[in-house]
Amino acid sequence: MKLLWRYTVYHFRSQLEYRVSFWLTTLGQFLVPFVSFAGMALLFRQFGTLEQWTLSDVALLYGVTQLAFAFNELFIRGFDSFSSLVVSGEFDRLLVRPRNMVLQVLGSKQDFTRFGRLVQSTIVFVWAIANASFQWTFLKGVCLALMVFGGMGIFAALFMGFATLSFWTIKGLEVVNLFTDGGREMAQYPLTIYPKAIQRFFTFAVPFFVVNALPLFFLTDVPGYEAAIYAFVPLIGFLALVPAYFIWNYGVRHYQSTGS
């Protein structure tokens, strides 16, 4: 933990060496998702609701998803840009150090310009909480927090799982963005609005459903979803890290036997 903190401080200081570039990128990271949220708000002003969901419901999911994603891009960046670590040979350097590989990859890169995105999503998040279409209870608060954490778990698992691909192929990883960026864009809305096939995909292949529609049913008191158990469903998102970790370890072992 102490080591990870030092990594974090160093990354922050390194990036502040280039102040203008840092602040401009941060501003960009703030504005770009803001535009997408503004578009969302305009549509709701025109049409009122989306299925049964109001703007504040959707804004809540938007906040959850963007927060989870921004957190990952900031702190799990090492896995997101893992291919460069392999290409540059820096991964070899990590292997000759007496520390856990996951920890070292986490420490290899952190991107504080994502702070812009984090701030932006926090603003939307807080607004959505204040303007909720339903009554808050303690359990609902817990549920919301778990949604954010579960979302972080899913994104982290995606980053980690796909980072493993870098051991086999360096190019053509654009398909990965379909899952990460695509998942983020989709999960900003309640997944119930999509066709069944897409819903199934985001339930079983990538379990966004458990941090998205399902807990939202609980929050908005949809009949049949009032049981307290639904408040803890987002925890399943964390389980995604288990297969991701095994895939990752398999990749490291493959790398050690092939080099490349």
Binding site: R6, Y10, R13, S14, E17, S88, R97, R99
Partner: peptide
């Protein structure tokens, strides 16, 4: 290749290694 931090003073890289090892 380098194992030092490009934008930070050398002594900082040494301190990180102290923690790593």
């Amino acid at each position: 290749r380098t194992q030092l931090w490009w934008d930070l003073p050398v002594s900082d890289s040494f301190l990180l290694l102290k923690d790593i090892y």
